[in-house]
Amino acid sequence: MHSVNVIDTVVFHNFKALRNTSLHLSLFNLVIGPNGSGKTSLIQALQQLRTLSQFPLGNDMIHTRSGGPEISFTFSAPYSAVVAQLGCASDLACDFMRVESRDAAAWLKVKSRLATLRSYVLDHNAMAQSSAPVDSTALASNGSNLAAVLAARRRDAPEAFARLEAELLRLLPEFTGIVLDEESDQRVRFSLGIDGAGEPVRAENLSQGVFYLLGLLVLSFDPKPPAVVCIEEIDRGIHPRMLREVRDVLYRLSYPASFGEKREPVQVIATTHSPYMLDQFRDHPDEIVITQKIGHEARFERLSDRADLPELLRDGTLGDMWFSGVLGGVPEER
């Protein structure tokens, strides 16, 4: 059976705080937990997989090591027979990869999908900068080429750009449109037209939340999105009442058919520290991953594995339950 997921499971052994744990990844995954509990490490592991998967396969050195960090990945059907194992010289550098697969063609297909994997920690200061038009194939990990990506999208995929712009204006009705200017140094700068005012608001004067929302929209309305997208702190800078919209923007990536899109679903791994964001997933606890940290060791749990979840939700919202500590995934106090 063909699955829409790319990565099925990740097994960690001595990788940072992830000493001995595994995680089955769904199509959409919202990871919550205290600082230093492995949320970013999970995303780093996926980045390492992408990087190493693009090199020619190495030898079996991973099996000659002992005690060093190791990360194993399995993939979803029809590539479930493929296993990729990373060996790491340290927590920061995984330098070996071994692939177990009887089907070379299957690995090549997995590899081509992994090549598109992108991870994001958006930075509003970087996003406000003008950018060179050549730097526009995909949004940079911090969003620093936002202006160039918008210009390229308008030029190469005007329909997708129009839908992105329409969604932005629906979410932020005080604006009237995206204005793109090429400056004398050929760098692209963007601003947003504002209702009832003459001059558009230049990027450097926009609020943080506008950048983050725009960044998410650029990803969500990409006509050719990556197979896997990792995004940290999806709620950052956004008003709590807007978080339902943020959830929808991300759901558009993973469940395109629900939004009238005709393209392959994108596997999303997102993180948040917001109880209000968590509340948006009350009906889909299978999409929530909680990182539990005890001492120096962290592990993953799926919220849907909690048998008492229905009873818990009678007494409080999901976010309240998380904050209270009942769900775990809270900082240790000494």
Partner: peptide, 19 residues
Amino acid sequence: TRAELKFRIYQTERPSLPH
């Protein structure tokens, strides 16, 4: 179930807010 009622109305388990 509540989820079934939602599906009957929205034809999806994950409707966008405008939908």
